[in-house]
């Protein structure tokens, strides 16, 4: 067992966990923050996306012990206009990938704002086109196929 502290959604939490517990399982099973979802546990679907010091990560591929004293934001700690935009643009159906899509979108907007390019960024381009959004959000799968609504929601808040 390892004892560690972590700031989760602005509150310092203390965890007694085995060192092999993923950040995702620590959040869901120990802290009862079940808004973060497990879809594949392999880093392939993005449902478990959270923000670590503002950067988006797949929490299933992170060990909780790596995040001692770091700042973790889960969907439960987010209040952002993108949530209403998701509702208005119907950017989800079943809702299972939604927490990850929202956290990922917030992280993605920050990356783009900081000038980080993507695979489709043309030299010198700075705008966030639909193609940019789609490319940058491609790590977050939605099997219901709500991609159009998600892109529209992100476009609205990126304006």
């Amino acid at each position: 067992m390892v004892t560690l502290r972590m700031r989760v959604n602005g509150t310092t939490r203390s965890l007694d966990i085995e060192p092999w517990v993923s950040l995702l399982d620590a959040l869901r099973e120990q802290l009862d923050l079940t808004g973060t979802k497990k879809g594949c546990d392999q880093g392939a679907c993005g449902a478990c996306t959270v923000l670590a010091d503002g950067e988006r990560i797949n929490s299933c591929l992170a060990l909780a012990v790596q995040y001692e004293d770091r700042d973790i934001t889960t969907i439960e700690g987010i209040t952002h206009p993108i949530q209403q935009a998701f509702i208005e643009h119907d950017g989800f159906q079943c809702g299972y990938c939604t927490s990850g899509q929202i956290c990922s979108a917030i992280g993605m907007l920050a990356e783009h704002g900081a000038g980080m390019p993507s695979a489709v960024t043309e030299p010198g381009a700075t705008g966030l086109s639909e193609a940019e959004i789609r490319e940058r959000m491609s790590g977050n799968l939605c099997r219901c196929g709500a991609y159009n609504g998600i892109v529209d929601a992100i476009k609205e808040v990126a304006r």
């Binding site: 497990k38 439960e76 509702i87 989800f92």
Partner: peptide, 20 residues
């Protein structure tokens, strides 16, 4: 707008593996 939108966009919706 779908009625469960607020639950699904805030992480409050509890799925089958999330009942404590």
């Amino acid at each position: 707008d779908r009625v469960d939108g607020p639950e699904k966009t805030t992480g409050k919706a509890r799925f089958a593996a999330e009942f404590p």
